[in-house]
Write a protein that binds this DNA or RNA. Sequence first.
DNA 1: GTATTATGCGTACATTTGTACTGGAGTCAA
DNA 2: TTGACTCCAGTACAAATGTACGCATAATAC
Lengths: 129, 129
Amino acid sequence: MGERPALSKAELEVARVLWELGEATVRQVHETLSASRKIDFATVQTYMRRLESKGYARTWLDGRTRVYTPSVKPATVIRETVDDLVERLFGGETLPLMQHLIEDRGVSGEDLAQLRALLDRLEEDGHGK
Amino acid sequence: MGERPALSKAELEVARVLWELGEATVRQVHETLSASRKIDFATVQTYMRRLESKGYARTWLDGRTRVYTPSVKPATVIRETVDDLVERLFGGETLPLMQHLIEDRGVSGEDLAQLRALLDRLEEDGHGK
DNA sequence: GTATTATGCGTACATTTGTACTGGAGTCAA
DNA sequence: TTGACTCCAGTACAAATGTACGCATAATAC
């Protein structure tokens, strides 16, 4: 049932903002995005329309204003996106990616602790898979 | 000096094969790729030409046959690609991605050990950043 | 040598992506 | 009731992407 076309990079950005806001108008998303990069209102509008047509968001009119809300959970999209990347870039292997993340991008002390906690948890209840 | 245009998904796949083989003709790359998915010879050829024109590979003729070799290290491309993904999908935060990797994709027992080792190593010599 | 096969080059082309302008229609202030 | 705004739908359009066909030439097989 889940054959949505994949989201492009720019669309992902918009989707992320939408997840953050939960429910938002184009204007709100545009404002949020504008904080970090220059982007036209109409451009955001197009992305959101595409989000909807690709099945990643639902939308309705609240009076004059169109409201969007995500219809696919971030976890799902993340899984699909990351899986694809891991597939293409590492032939499906996860470890090299983690290695890269840990070694090449700074992992803060806090993050380290959290990671450890995660590993511990995993090791306890039936690890592997 | 490094303003290469980014590689597309399909190009990444080809690049990966090229890294693996170190030096290869279109035919070799095509054969390797064919193992996992149906793809036309000429298509691979186009990708490799694009790899070269984007500055990711060098090439020359060995007699009749054109040989390609990567001119950018995997680590570099991986960094650029992953950084971009992390930026767009997680707003720049690394931890959520790792969490996803560890929780949602099976990490084997072996991998776990390796990860731990990595963390240990990091913690020793000046951790953080 | 002549047919067959490999290769490389150029070209093509439909889609998707990134980005944005335009015009109409409601809304508010003066 | 005339601007000045705001918001939406539609359209536009160049560049990038995915995918491949066709032609010329060189290598091989008969």
